[in-house]
């Protein structure tokens, strides 16, 4: 068990107001480093460095 990941995940779940079982929290914590690595790769993608996000806001509802 990655204790740092477990601590971060527990804090994020608590901040979101979620109450998973200990086993569920452990599963999320086990997967968390992998997701973080995938996210880090997205921040390191050269073609996205100066890209505009695909977010659209329209001035009318």
């Amino acid at each position: 068990m990655n204790t740092e990941a477990a601590t971060v995940v527990a804090a994020l779940l608590a901040a979101a107001g979620l109450s998973p079982t200990p086993e569920e929290a452990a599963r999320l914590a086990a997967a968390y480093p992998g997701w973080q690595a995938e996210l880090a790769a997205l921040y390191d993608m050269p073609d996205a460095r100066y890209e505009t996000p695909a977010l659209v806001f329209r001035p009318e509802p």
Partner: peptide
């Protein structure tokens, strides 16, 4: 993170 995903989507669409 969410915004970065949207930047990657745009770069992916261009590629």
């Amino acid at each position: 993170d969410f915004v970065q995903l949207q930047r990657v989507r745009r770069a992916g669409q261009r590629a």
